[in-house]
């Protein structure tokens, strides 16, 4: 008689091995565990997301609330988040100040020209670098990055002198060119990574169908990377829209942009927080609208590299 038959008769022998469960039940336990794990992961992610939102959103919200405060509320000690009394006075003061409307127009002009210049130069440059992969191309893209390492003030003053000497002093074009020196390297790098993610097969197929190299770029590659172009455009636009130092050094009466006007609320003899925050809040509206309009393209652009391979 085997041990097994003895055990069967006398009941199960003492053992540490758990009793086997039906397959269905075991799966149920695992699924619950997995779902619980997923729930906690999701909760942690939501908490992190909320923390990030607070971190990024709070300064803007504080700025927004301050713009509705009375003068004495803006300098309250300790500071308050919400206005004790809501007022539109700061908006009236800020928008009624001479030169504000003109500065908005100048900001738009400068940012649009700078963005257009950046894209016109960055797209072919990035395409050439990624498709031809020459040693000089690699040197060029590294050199483009090096220009970002130079403190803007070091080039701002000579650039202002150069613009004056060619008769472009105090023009949006001069400031746009200066802003392009900031945004172009970043644009080239961004566009290079987007072009890298487009399989060469697409262009080859277009060439087989009779497209020239430029035709393939225009008809096939550019539409594929349009999301990337939108992302690059947004970054170039923002770089120009918010830039202060070059605007300070290179603009006077005709082309002063809004960041300089906002800074003008801080004077040697006082700081008009209310008007400053009101104008800053208004100034952020076009960028928010632009981002919302291009949201889909931006998301597409952000995930463009994700499908590679």
């Amino acid at each position: 008689m085997s041990n097994a038959s003895v055990a069967t008769k006398a009941g199960p022998p003492p053992s540490d091995i758990p009793e086997p469960q039906p397959l269905r039940k075991r799966r149920g336990v695992n699924r619950e565990g997995l779902e619980a794990g997923r729930r906690s992961t999701r909760t942690i992610l939501w908490i992190l997301l909320a923390a990030a939102m607070v971190l990024y959103g709070f300064p803007f919200l504080y700025l927004l609330f301050t713009s509705f405060k009375t003068p004495i509320d803006t300098i309250a000690v300790p500071p308050t988040i919400l206005p004790r009394e809501w007022t539109l006075e700061n908006y009236t003061n800020a928008l009624g100040r001479s030169g504000v409307v003109a500065s908005f127009i100048n900001s738009i002009q400068t940012a649009v020209i700078s963005t257009a210049l950046s894209l016109v130069l960055a797209v072919p440059a990035a395409y050439g670098i990624t498709r031809y992969k020459t040693p000089s191309g690699r040197v060029f893209i590294m050199a483009a990055l090096v220009t970002r390492m130079v403190p803007p003030v070091a080039i701002g003053i000579p650039l202002a002198s150069m613009m004056a000497s060619v008769g472009l002093a105090d023009t949006p074009i001069a400031l746009s060119i200066a802003h392009t020196t900031i945004s172009l390297p970043l644009s080239i790098w961004l566009m290079s990574s987007f072009f890298e993610s487009v399989p060469r097969d697409l262009e080859e197929a277009a060439t087989v169908d009779g497209c020239s190299r430029l035709g393939a770029l225009w008809r096939v590659v550019i539409p594929v990377v349009s999301g990337g172009i939108a992302v690059t455009a947004i970054f170039a636009f923002l770089a120009s829209w918010n830039e202060f130092l070059f605007a300070l050094l290179m603009t006077a009466i005709r082309s002063q942009t809004t960041p300089v006007v906002i800074a003008n609320f801080q004077t040697q003899f006082g700081l008009d927080w209310g008007s400053m925050t009101a104008l800053a809040a208004v100034y952020s509206i076009p960028v928010i609208l632009l981002t919302l309009l291009l949201q889909r393209k931006i998301v597409a652009g952000m995930t463009l590299g994700a499908v590679k391979g």
Partner: peptide, 26 residues
């Protein structure tokens, strides 16, 4: 928006004008 921006850019490159006031000479 893109088209408008490009048109504005072209127009401004052509004119070089700003919105703030009279053109200063050197």
């Amino acid at each position: 928006v893109t088209l408008g921006g490009l048109c504005t850019a072209v127009a401004l490159v052509a004119t070089g004008c700003g919105a703030g006031g009279p053109a200063p000479s050197q």
